[in-house]
Every structure is written in structure tokens, then in C-alpha cells.
Design a protein around this nucleic acid. Sequence first.
RNA 1: GCUCAUAUAGCUCAGCGGUAGAGCACUUGCUUGGUAAGUAAGAGGUCACCGGUUCAAGUCCGGUUAUGAGCUCCA
Length: 647
Amino acid sequence: MSKEITITLPDGSQKQAPVGISGLEIANMIGAGLAKAAVAFSVNGEQRDLSDVVSQDADISIFTIESDEGLEIMRHTVAAQVLARAIKNLYPKAKLAIGPTIENGFYYDFLSDERVSIDDLPKIEKEMEKIVSEKSVITKTIHSKKEAIKSFADAKEDYKVKIIEDSEQEDNFQLYNQGDTGFIDLCRGPHLPSLEKVGAFKLTKIAGAYWKGDSQNEMLSRIYGTAWKNEKDLKKYLTLLEEAEKRDHRKLAKEMDLFHLQEEAPGMVFWHAKGWSIYVALQNYIRNKQIANGYKEINTPLVVDRKLWEASGHWDKYRENMFITEIDEEHANEKRVNALKPMNCPCHVQVYNQGLKSYKDLPVRLAEFGSCHRYEASGTMHGLMRVRGFTQDDGHIFCTEDQIESETADFISLLSEIYTELGFESFDIKLSTRPETRVGSDEVWDKAETALENAIKKLDIPYTVEAGDGAFYGPKLDFVLTDAIGREWQCGTFQADFNLPDRLDAEYIGEDGAKHQPVMMHRAILGSFERFIGILIENYSGKLPLWLAPIQLSILTVTEEANEFAMTLKEKFNAINLRVELDDRNEKIGYKIREHSNAKVPLMAVIGKEEMAAGTVSIRNLRENETNTYSIDEAVELLSNDSSPPN
RNA sequence: GCUCAUAUAGCUCAGCGGUAGAGCACUUGCUUGGUAAGUAAGAGGUCACCGGUUCAAGUCCGGUUAUGAGCUCCA
């Protein structure tokens, strides 16, 4: 029997160690500095507490707070040991639920009779600091299910008891103790060996959350926090949050006079002239791209009889999200129930179904800027990002199963081109495959999933597979883009549909002279214009590229004497379809520059006696804050090139 | 839809039982000023809506609607 084991470190080096060596002892073997900095370790990829022992040959990594793993462990300890105990200290009757880590931080859910509000966070934070300053050592004990349940039942921690009862595990329940404070917590671990290693943290918000995430269950209080290895990182993160707040499209849109929302039409946008100008520019850009890529643009009714929605299946499956309208019997021969379309697909099938289609006609690519209405739950609305009335850059491709692969490839390359031209450098693809309940034969699913996957592989784009996440009617691709501050937005989609062509009797005549059913591909690149414009505003902090900016150039006069010259310039720029505004108010030039800068006008032409005398234009660029002087002809030439959409 | 919070001038906000306030914006003077706020005066409000308590309600209480942060949802 060997008394030694071999441990392999991440760099491949190996060390001999006695059986039963602890994580901390291994760290010490490597170096005293590491042992001091260590917060946890992993055995064959599984995270463990430093006090845990190793009794077999294993791959070992030691984590410090510098690593992502170490940071996450620290956040976990702040939640489960520090925040949880602070809650119990301040609200002894509170019942603790769960306290996991999330991106950049953690939260803790608990039930409390006493109301806890945002104003209580400083108090809780102070209690947390007190707990941390005690520098308690964290130890754990292992218990059977029965013992664990008894411990938490004694502590009146109902949720912990439920968690243990619902667990399939019979023993090895880990209870963490904090020094001799008497505080215990159930946890998978690992935790910091001591609260001494806690970094800088801050509680950020408080909100309600359902127990186990089920809206049937009771609502718990949830406190969110963030934690970092030191004050500097914490500060950096808080600054980033402030930056994100400054980019909020709702705030910028008010400053830029783009749109508003009001009570009488919740979730529906009142576009102002400047916002609509962005919308129109974006729509024309997409329109041209689609026509150049073989799509035919169509337009279908907003209000459609329930019969079509019954046929398509929406009346059954989607009704609670639909706006229903009735025609008064006084005004019609019969009472008719209609719905505002929540999707364009059934209408597109109607267009497809007009006239007999041959296999030679396929693929048929129909596109529509389809205005849709969906009754979203009241709490889900958010500026332009989540609305009840919106317009999709929708399209449906009717094709044969054999054409799915090439249509997928064409679609991805179009989408990629458009995202790049709109200023987004990268996007991810998610492939969602067959769910348990579905329509269509397994052979058809095999074929479609393979076709989608092959297309991505051939284009050599990385993707992830979300097994079982597809819609019941077919597999799909989702496209997630990353914005300037690293946030991800799911926008584009490409979905196969074996269901709707069947329900709505779409068919074509094949080479064999018989009727066949086409596959329908639903696709969108922006998703919704409303939401995408919101994303663009936030991505650019309102400083949109010249071709999208509502006002592209403001002409600012320095003195009244230059007004006439400025007016002739405005006419010259108008003639090349530039969106120009003349500011000849009786104000100082610094004042005008400030105002137009705040309105995010990308270019400003400052016109005074000098320009008048020389017949030149001085153009100041908002993004770079730089000024260049051009002759009038140069300026006209330059701007007529720079202001057109990418192609 | 659920929990909590919020709703006062065009905007951002203060006022929290005793007949409405600031800054910016707006209007009108003065100022003609060269690259991010010149100056003075003036005008501007059913204090979201409905009900209750009170001698008296932006102010306290209840309800409604909308908005915000989360949760749930987003075939």
C-alpha cells in the first residue's frame, strides 16, 4: 500500500505528497506566499475547501483571489457568510433561502416579516463590515441528511430544510461555521478559509424574487451586491455602471428629442421627427440590402380575422399575448372578432399561397417591415427595448429541405455584413435543437439541424449548441451581438418551421408533378426596429454615425453679419440631401457649440467673418472635437460621400 | 402578472398637514461675441387620476393608471 500520492499541477509539474494532504498543505509545498494567498483549490477540476484532503493521485490547482475562480469563491462567501449573517443579525426572524454568485457579484434571497427597503442597505452594509472585521475562521462539518435537517429545523430555517429534503443526496451535507459565532450555513462550497480574505464589496439594489423562480411561489426579498478583490476594482466597476447609465437610451432620447411614451398607449412609441429620421434611414438601408439579396418586399394587414389565427394555431397558443378587436354589429352585418397581428408569418403564407408555385420558383424570399402588436405583461416594458407595438425586419423563405443549408449560409453572411456595417464587431451564434414536444418527423429534424450546423461550420464561425431549446416547429439559430461596453443583445434569428406550411396549406409542384410542402424559414436581422435603435443609441452613446444622425450638420453663426452667408451654405448642403440645421440665434459661439454637442449633432460648421471673407467652411467633429477648414466645394464633396449609408 | 419604489413647471429635482420653490430651458431687453453655459427682467403648475381622514391634504390613508429596479414571461 502506497503512502504517497502524485499530484499534478497546472503547469504539468508533479510532486509526491503523503496521502491525506490538505489543500493548504499542498499550497505550502509550492510556496509560503501561495499558501498565504490561497482561497481554495480544485481536485481534478472540482472545487474544494483548502481544509479538504486529497487521498489519491490528482490534478491540483490552487486558487487565489487573483483568479476568476478565486474571485467567485470570495463573492460566494460574502453572500453566504457575510450578507446572510448580517441579515440574521439585523432581522433575527428572517428565513434564509439561497445566496449564489452572479456575474460581477452575488445576491441573497430571504423572507422577512419586517419590510426591508433600499434605505436599509447602508445599515446592512455596515453590519457586514463589522462581521468581516472580526476575521472569523470558516470551518465546515459534514452531516447526514437527517442531521442536517435537524440542525436547520432547530434554527427555524425552513428554506434550508426544504432544500435538504428536496435533495437526492443522502449524506455529505456541508455545514459551514463562522468562528464561534454560532452562525451556520448549508453550502456546496467552497468558501474562503477566513473572512480576512474578503475584498471590497457594496450592496447595490433590493428587489423581489420568487422562491425557486416560480411565479406560483411566494415572493422573497433579494439583496444584490457586488464584490471585488480590492477597492480599486470595485471603484472601476461602479464607474462602469455609471457609464452604462449615461448611455441609457431613454435618457439620451429625451435629450436628443427622439421619441416619447405616454400613459394612453403603454409600450407604443410616439416617434418625434428626429427619432423617426433614424428609423427611416435604418429602414432604407435594410430595404436596399434585402432587395440586393433576393428578397421581395411585401406588406400585409394589421388587423386579421380570428379564423386565420385559429388556422395558424396562434389563437390556441398565443392568444393571451394578442390584442383582440371587435367590429360593432351596428356597423357590420355580422360581429367579427379580429386580432392585431402579433407576427407576420401567417400573412406571408397567404401571399405565398396566391398562385401555384413550382419547384423552379423556390426559394421564395418574402420580406416585410411588419408592424406587430403583442400584449406584453405590464412589468416587462422597458423603453424601446421591450414594447407592445413594434416593427420587425421580418422575412420568410419558402424552400425545399435541400435548400436550407445554402439559404442559411446566405442569411448568415448578409447578417454578418449588416452587423459589421452598423458598428458591431462580433456576434455569437446559438444553435437550438429539437425539444421533447415537437412536430415533424425525426428525419426532417435530422436534415434541418444538420443543414443549419453545416452552414455555420462551412463559414467557420464559432457557435454553441443549446440542445432541446428549439421551438416545437423546428430548429433555430439565434444571433447575439456584443456592444461597445461588452453587453450582449440577441437580435437576429433564423428558424426552420415544419408546422405552419402544413397548417396553412403551403405547397409547390415538384419535378415529379406532385404536390409537396415547402419548409418555411422565419428570419430577422435587427429583430425589431424599436429595440435595435435603442441598442444603437446605447452602443454609440447617442453619437450615431453620420448617415444615421437625425441632424448631420449644424451651421452655427458667430455673428449676425454671417447669417446670409450661412444661409447660402445651408442651401448648398440641402442640395446634396444632407440633414442640416442653421443656428443663427443671437448667442455666443461657445453656447451654440455646447448646445449642439449635447444634442449629439456629429458635425458643426462655425461660420463667422473669417469664413465669409475666405469663402471657406470650418467643420468641427463631435467625436474627435477637432476642427478642419475646407473650401466650400471640398466640404460639399466630402460630406456627400461621408453621409451616405454603407454598402 | 408579482414585489418594492416613484409620479410637483418643458427638463432635473427640492418641499412632506396651514392657500407652490430652485437650477436649466422658454419670452423680452442689453450684449455682435471665434470653438462646451454673457447678462438682466418676465412668464410658466387642477402638485398623475379617483375616493377617504382632517377646520385645513402635493404633504396622511386606500384604490387606479403609468414609470423604474428586479422576478416571472418572451411559442
